[in-house]
Amino acid sequence: MFIMTHEIKRQWRPLLIFALALSFVLAVVVVMYPSMAEDMGGLMSLVDGLGMFTDALNLDISQLNSLIGFYGMEMEIMVGIAGALYAAYLGISLLSKEESRHTAEFLLSHPVKRQRIYLEKAAALIVLLTLFNIIIYIIAYLSIMASGQSVPLVAFSLLHGASLLLQLNIGLLCFGISAFLSNESIGLGMGIALLLYFFSLFANIWQELAWLRFITPFQYAFAADILKNEHLDLGLIVIVFGTCLIVTFAGLFHYSKRDIAS
């Protein structure tokens, strides 16, 4: 477990800073809601006027009348995208940085199998993203209580649970892909996250591209659907996550066989 704990120790400071930054944004959203609720009609008219963008973002205007609906929309836009990019960064860099920073020779000189290196770094990725989301969850909920407001705990937890699954999906996908790379390629990881996001938007706008919903994790993290159905789309999660796990295990097989640049 040395490799996993080492990675967690190296990453916890930037993780904490980023988690606190996003938590602050959500806290501001919570504090602002009572004043915005007084003019919610104007906000709903503004959102309704977005037209095609309302469909693309899968926004339910009627849900903006409640704190959980407004919170879910803001969280989806800010934490959803920012969290996905952070997950992509971790996923694409945790493994491939050993080659790009020329530390692979030192790491592989130890009596440890490549499979163990790969799996422990994947475990570190899972732990880091889980901690990242726990911090945001706790601070956001405390902010709601401190402001004297309330939200349904189940719905609140489902929103954050979907965000965690989204980040794990993208993080593990990028991690599996990184096993085929000889450098960190952070731009590639970011590009994959953004591409999957746009796939989700395209699937919402054009019926001909509806099949894209089965390859992008953003589709099961839409706040409007979660709050309306009061549960996550487990079938879609299994399909999308299944593809991600295939790539992850393909990366494990390839990493155990390939030549590693020192």
Score class of each variant (00 low, 15 high):
residue 252 L to E: 06
residue 88 A to P: 06
residue 169 N to D: 13
residue 166 L to I: 11
residue 38 E to L: 09
residue 184 E to D: 13
residue 54 T to A: 09
residue 35 S to H: 14
residue 58 N to K: 15
residue 79 V to M: 07
residue 80 G to V: 08
residue 231 H to D: 07
residue 94 L to Y: 09
residue 38 E to T: 06
residue 165 L to H: 05
residue 56 A to I: 11
residue 77 I to H: 07
residue 64 L to Q: 09
residue 150 S to C: 03
residue 109 S to Y: 08
residue 205 I to C: 01
residue 191 G to P: 08
residue 230 E to G: 01
residue 174 C to F: 06
residue 229 N to M: 12
residue 154 V to Q: 12
residue 55 D to K: 12
residue 1 M to A: 10
residue 10 R to F: 09
residue 101 R to W: 15
residue 211 W to P: 03
residue 105 E to H: 14
residue 8 I to F: 04
residue 114 R to M: 04
residue 86 Y to R: 05
residue 113 K to T: 15
residue 119 L to R: 11
residue 68 I to A: 00
residue 16 L to D: 10
residue 196 L to D: 05
residue 137 Y to W: 15
residue 247 V to P: 01
residue 6 H to I: 14
residue 2 F to Y: 14
residue 2 F to W: 12
residue 40 M to L: 14
residue 130 T to L: 14
residue 112 V to Q: 13
residue 198 F to P: 00
residue 214 F to E: 05
residue 227 L to M: 01
residue 59 L to C: 00
residue 176 G to E: 09
residue 46 L to A: 02
residue 41 G to E: 11
residue 70 F to W: 10
residue 192 I to S: 01
residue 141 Y to M: 11
residue 243 T to I: 14
residue 257 K to T: 04
residue 213 R to G: 14
residue 258 R to F: 09
residue 137 Y to H: 09
residue 257 K to S: 03
residue 229 N to Y: 13
residue 184 E to I: 14
residue 134 I to Y: 06
residue 10 R to V: 11
residue 244 C to L: 04
residue 1 M to G: 11
residue 235 G to N: 03
residue 37 A to T: 08
residue 140 A to R: 03
residue 73 M to G: 01
residue 214 F to T: 14
residue 160 H to E: 04
residue 158 L to F: 10
residue 251 G to S: 05
residue 98 E to V: 03
residue 109 S to F: 09
residue 68 I to H: 02
residue 200 S to C: 09
residue 156 F to D: 08
residue 183 N to T: 15
residue 81 I to L: 13
residue 46 L to F: 13
residue 198 F to G: 02
residue 110 H to G: 00
residue 180 F to Y: 15
residue 18 F to N: 08
residue 36 M to Q: 11
residue 191 G to C: 07
residue 207 Q to D: 14
residue 103 T to G: 01
residue 216 T to D: 02
residue 153 L to Q: 12
residue 137 Y to R: 08
residue 19 A to F: 04
residue 110 H to A: 10
residue 227 L to P: 01
residue 258 R to E: 05
residue 116 R to E: 12
residue 75 M to Y: 09
residue 236 L to Y: 10
residue 234 L to S: 02
residue 131 L to C: 08
residue 171 G to V: 02
residue 19 A to R: 06
residue 10 R to K: 14
residue 155 A to W: 06
